[in-house]
């Protein structure tokens, strides 16, 4: 601002200090940020902070605790059920996320093609995501029932097996079953978001690639995939986070059984904290999930969002 302009602006004595403050960009943006900051603070930072604090105390239900340092974590370190739940959670997250990604991408590619009744199919795909988790979990509970499973029933009627499949009783099968249920539920989110990403890719890129003699695999590998990577990074970060913190599905299907073979950190945390009454230890298990979640976020942030890599270059 030059001196002349300053002089010209001077005769405005009627504007109050407050009004002038509001003209300041920094003040204004701070004001606009305040409500969301307050909401974040009250509903996110405070509970998270409280959870972390509880993990350092021996708080029980109905009894305030005292600070005990890392004792909860020491106890968990020697607890084989806790380590089993860590193993289960990682297996569950990795297996389910990989499957959700592969199947979701496949579905998105199909839906992106010219299909009859496209809108109808896209709506159908969303269904598993729309149904409340608890409801779909109950449906799966019937599908996996030890006596009344529709799968076992059909296979027995077809003469393929003699006895019902022990879906939720055998540890390996139980793990596979809950992963399958989670995949079924999670695919729509991945598929629809990737579909949205696919539609932002300009057809001219494909035309150019075709003119250069690229086959369909090459078009996918060198056009679709690099253009889709930013969306993949976001979708998979969310998908991993949802899967890692899954609770309802396990709680309805197995309660962590058989013999803790499907206990996830989230379900174990609840079991110890609420029905078990040991809030401190439950909080410690929940806090122990944070490093894994951070690692997943950082991996996607640093690994998948690198611009040069996205643009097909090398790091």
């Amino acid at each position: 601002m030059n001196a002349a302009a300053e002089v010209a602006l001077k005769p405005a004595p009627r504007r109050s200090r407050g009004a002038r403050l509001l003209e300041n960009r920094n003040v204004l943006s701070a004001l606009f940020l305040l409500p969301s900051a307050a909401i974040l603070l009250v509903f996110l930072t405070y509970p998270l902070g409280l959870g972390v604090w509880l993990g350092f105390t021996d708080t029980r239900i109905g009894r305030p605790g005292i600070f005990i340092g890392l004792e909860n974590y020491e106890i968990l370190w020697h607890d084989h059920v806790f380590w089993l739940s860590v193993f289960n959670t990682i297996l569950y997250t990795v297996a389910a996320s990989v499957l959700k990604f592969a199947l979701g991408l496949w579905l998105a590619l199909i839906l992106n093609e010219k299909l009859p009744f496209k809108a109808f199919f896209r709506a159908i795909v969303l269904l598993p995501w729309v149904v409340p988790t608890v409801l779909s979990a109950i449906a799966f509970w019937w599908i996996y029932d030890a006596q009344f499973s529709i799968i076992s029933y059909s296979l027995i009627k077809l003469g393929i097996i003699d006895t019902p499949i022990n879906f939720l009783g055998d540890p390996t099968l139980a793990r596979a079953s809950v992963i399958a249920a989670n995949v079924w539920r999670g695919i729509p989110f991945v598929a629809i978001t990737l579909l949205a990403g696919l539609q932002t890719i300009s057809p001219s890129l494909y035309e150019a690639a075709t003119l250069d003699g690229a086959g369909s695999w090459q078009r996918f590998r060198h056009v679709t995939l690099p253009m889709l990577t930013p969306i993949i990074a976001v979708v998979m970060t969310f998908s991993v986070l949802f899967t890692f913190t899954d609770f309802q599905l396990i709680y309805v299907l197995t309660r962590g059984g058989p013999v803790n073979a499907t206990h996830l950190m989230a379900t174990l945390s609840f079991q110890r904290a609420i029905p078990g009454g040991h809030l401190g230890e439950g909080a410690a298990i929940a806090v122990a999930m944070i490093p894994f979640l951070l690692a997943a976020i950082l991996f996607s942030y640093f690994g998948m969002q690198r611009r040069r890599w996205q643009q097909g270059g090398r790091d």
Binding site: Y144, A146, Q147, F148, P164, N166, L168, G169, A174, G257
Partner: peptide
């Protein structure tokens, strides 16, 4: 009967 290790509270009633 097979599968009792996966039973929750409702299963025995149903069976």
């Amino acid at each position: 009967i097979p599968g009792t290790e996966s039973w929750l509270d409702v299963n025995n009633n149903r069976a």
